[in-house]
Write a protein that binds this DNA or RNA. Structure first.
Length: 468
RNA sequence: GGUCCCAUCGUCUAGCGGUUUAGGACGCCGGCCUCUCACGCCGGUAACAGGGGUUCGAAUCCCCUUGGGAUCACCA
């Protein structure tokens, strides 16, 4: 059995969007699952729209997603000789011919056809002229007029096309460059791609490509056309549906593993399982289990899944990923152990790394500032004795374990007659500046003795300055 | 418009002729837990697009209708 060879072939005319990422992912997963190879090819024959910047953006996105390739990147723009050879081969074998019909004439032909309600197709004027190469001429593929071309698709099943619907499409432009369909086939052929997984917006191209394969006497690859990713209004996902680029989700604090999990689950399923690690995805992914219908991209579910991945991730593993988000807030984490502890108090209450960084703010600030509302509500003279007592108790404590802290609090409660809730909130505001945070014992333990006592004292001063 | 594809809760989906009062997840709504916010736990809401067949029996197979999507370049 020959090994699976898949590929991802984006055209670099913009950032990598989630739909493209999913196509790349399916190809990658299938190759990794089957121990095959995944090849990256950049389809940059359209010089007007291809940019260096887009190419970099694609690499960056794939790199972040952890989708690596075994061969390439190959660039179509550097393979012109190969296309030329194949085009000439097709002309020589009688499968293609030079055509001198002007674009205007073709345009007229099309308009006339439209007007009479007929199919807009090339009328074959030059088909049998036996023209040779000449300036301004294109090369057309001599497509069969009768019969059918069938696409045996792994996800869609058999699709039959009437050859009478197809026409003699251009394979070589008048400037000598190949058109898309020719280039794709030649590339997939020469790169020995045997499994073509791509978006189903390509199904209509496939009969043309199949005919090209046949004319080139090459074996057909296995085709798998995966359904599209739609926006919430069922139309093709685009900018007006919100963020569509892979990088945008990274900026939003989505984990690469979560995006991958979500994208894989969109259109593919493995029973009722929702959460998949990267390894599970590789182990369980099967292109045959991909569904036929298009799916709507749901950022809310992505977030929920992201929360699950954050929870499942070891704090020490998550730390390096959180650092840039802290930096964005002007916060610097110098101590890895401290950061890991911080994360362990935040990972069950954060849906994204952005949220987590915001929640971590008070851990890294030298001087915290009190939120007006929270301070007004909780830092009142009545709690001053409790805070004083707590400071005393904590100063005497050698170890800040949850147990020790709890008993310290209980003592304060007994002394002051206040319920834990009445003490915890003021302490929370004192330590974090806000009324929302992880558990009070947790944050005291992580912050450590000196910070805690300093902040409690500051709160006490605050109360006195206000009441005095 | 032609051609092609698709059709289970709002969304992602399980289901592959009987085990189904159609299951799970997200969302939403209750409740429990509780030092705040979350997490977690428990419960609820909500779907087989419509119509014909085939069959003892259909969400599952066939046909039609409807709805959605894709595509019709010397763009990829």
């Amino acid at each position: 059995m020959t090994s699976i060879r898949t590929r991802f072939a984006p055209s670099p005319s913009g950032y990598l969007h989630v739909g493209g990422a999913r196509t790349a992912l399916f190809n990658w997963l299938y190759a990794r699952h089957s121990g095959g190879s995944f090849i990256l090819r950049i389809e940059d024959t359209d010089k007007a729209r291809s940019t260096e910047e887009s190419i970099r953006a694609i690499f960056e996105a794939l790199d972040w997603l952890g989708i690596d390739w075994d061969e390439g990147p190959f660039y179509q723009s550097r393979r012109m000789e190969i296309y030329r050879e194949h085009i000439e081969r097709l002309v020589r074998s009688g499968h293609a011919y030079y055509c001198t019909c002007s674009p205007e004439k073709i345009q007229q032909m099309r308009e006339r056809a439209m007007a009479t309600g007929a199919k807009p197709r090339y009328d074959g004027t030059c088909r049998e002229k036996g023209l040779g190469p000449q300036p301004g001429a294109v090369v057309r593929f001599k497509a069969p007029y009768t019969g059918t071309t069938v696409l045996e698709d792994v996800v869609k099943g058999n699709i039959v096309f009437q050859n009478s619907e197809l026409d003699d499409f251009v394979i070589c432009r008048s400037d000598g460059t190949p058109t898309y369909n020719l280039a794709v086939v030649v590339d997939d052929l020469t790169m020995e791609i045997n499994t073509v997984i791509r978006g189903d917006d390509h199904v209509m191209n496939t009969p043309k490509q199949i005919q090209l394969y046949k004319a080139l006497q090459a074996p057909l690859p296995v085709f798998a056309h995966v359904p599209m990713v739609l926006g919430n209004d069922r139309s093709r996902l685009s900018k007006r549906h919100g963020a569509t680029s892979v990088t945008a989700y990274r900026e939003m604090g989505i984990l690469a593993d979560a995006l991958i999990n979500y994208l894989a689950r969109l259109g593919w399923s493995h029973g009722d399982q929702e959460f998949f690690t990267r390894q599970e995805l590789i182990a369980k992914f099967d292109i045959k289990a991909v569904g036929k219908s298009a799916g709507i991209f749901d950022p809310v579910k992505l977030q929920a899944l992201n929360a699950d991945h954050i929870k499942a991730c070891e704090p020490s593993q998550l730390a390096p990923q959180l650092v840039p988000f802290l930096a964005r807030l002007g916060l610097e984490a110098r101590d890895d152990q401290y950061l890991a502890k911080v994360i362990s108090t935040l990972n069950t209450r954060s849906k994204t790394l952005v949220e987590m960084a915001e929640g971590a703010r008070f851990y890294f600030l030298e001087e915290i500032t009190f939120d007006e509302k929270a301070a007004g509500k909780f830092l009142k003279p009545a709690v001053a004795p409790a805070l004083e007592s707590l400071i005393q108790k904590l100063e005497q404590l050698e170890e800040f374990s949850e147990k020790a802290l709890e008993s310290a609090f209980i003592q304060v409660m007994e002394e002051t007659g206040l319920k834990l809730g009445k003490i915890a909130q003021p302490v929370r505001v004192a330590l974090t500046g806000t009324s929302v945070s992880p558990g009070i014992f947790e944050i005291i333990e992580v912050l450590g003795k000196s910070r805690v006592i300093r902040r409690l004292k500051k709160a006490l001063e605050f109360i006195r300055s206000r009441s005095g």
